[in-house]
Design a protein around this nucleic acid. Sequence first.
DNA 1: TGAAATGTTGGGGCG
DNA 2: ACGCCCCAACATTTC
Length: 478
Amino acid sequence: MTSVAIHWFRQDLRLADNPALSKAVEAGRLLPIYILDDDTAGEARMGGASRWWLHRSLEALDRQLGGKLRLYRGKAEEILPQLVKIYDAQTVSWTRCYEPWRIKRDKTISSRLELAGCRTIRLNGSLLWEPWSIKKQDGTPYKVFTPFYRKGCLQAPAPAMPMAAPHSIAFCAAKANDGALSLGDLGLLSKIGWHDTLEPYWEVSEKGGADCLAQFIDGGLDGYKTGRDFPSLAHISRLSPYLHFGQLSPNQVWHATERLAEDQGVPAADIDHFRSELAWREFSYSLLYYNPDLPSVPIQAKFADFEWQSDEALLKAWQSGLTGVPIVDAGMRELWQTGYMHNRVRMIVASFLIKNLRIDWRQGEAWFWDTLVDADLANNAASWQWVAGCGADAAPFFRIFNPVLQAEKFDPEGIYIRTFVPELAKLPNKYLARPWEAPSSTLQEAGVTPGESYPNPVVDLKHSREMALEAYKRLSEG
DNA sequence: TGAAATGTTGGGGCG
DNA sequence: ACGCCCCAACATTTC
């Protein structure tokens, strides 16, 4: 076998269940590459947490490939044709991505390569169903989740069975002058070293993804439907970063939940609910596919005129977990410390930013983009639009979370708040979610000095809620 | 995948 | 014994 096949890794950083990689391995001696293409990404260039995750991912993948992974930085549109020429490659394969900028770029690249006589293999490895395959009877895309999932996804052919990793790979000899960089030269780690705080929370590798999945299937899935709402419980999967970077494929996850009801007695309701959460990911991708400006333009046009406040100090307080509202601060600090935030708490902090602080949802989207290890263009944009009430099938704007009630309902023992807001740890449960109501003697005993050891609330919850509703009313009447 | 305001019901205290 | 009021507890409506 003399022909060379390049597999271009992107968001499929795994060997198992990677159809495009397997095809390349069959097609020739493999040159596995990754290109950091910030130039083409523009606005959508990866944030800090993602860069750390990517750094670790590439390190692990290179190890799996016996040190054969080649790294480049620059415009993929220029680098790929050069590599094809240098290595005289007959085949280039990749797993499809669905971000608008990537769709556009990849289309250009594949036609350019094909024109030069190089075969391109582009396969799905990141979604359960291709976005264009799930449509209504009339051929238009779904705008509401439930029919999208029940009628669209579940009636479509079942997701493919996951395939094994290639059992042996013949590599192509690398050439010294091909422009490859060392991992360090990619410059993915920030100089301030923020990523150090993330390290202990994640095992960033294909094995880490498999372990995470196994652990969830083993312990977390039973009781998922109700348990997933409680941020102190281990009833969430934490699979999102692995799915985003492709250390796991959604097919692997989907099929891992098969037969659990019959064989392990896991309640069907828990399995169904978990699968519907996977389908929300598909729905986000569908929304982005059919609305390429989803990250910046509200789907509901009237929201273009919403009166957002721009207040740097309030935004900063939210970002740094110093709003004086414990459940909000706990969530924002979980994000900063771990690169992750529990889903229930994501909704609470987002509602607080958008509705109580009345700050533009795109500011929240930008912060999440920079700090989440699972930052994903489709999920991030669709979810922020969902909370803001301006998206498709979104929560209505007037559905405003009361962060005190939410905390008392979903973190009744205050375990979550105490974990991330330790300066309040000694407050009794009764006042933990609303320290501003605590008598001064209670505060004193708990060692809390409002305004010093812990901030006073940056807004009045009741008043800010009313202001938001009025702004929304003006929009509806306007 | 809310919350607050408003409406309704029914039991018990009480004159 | 009876009507009246109070007020939980629950249901409905509204934003």
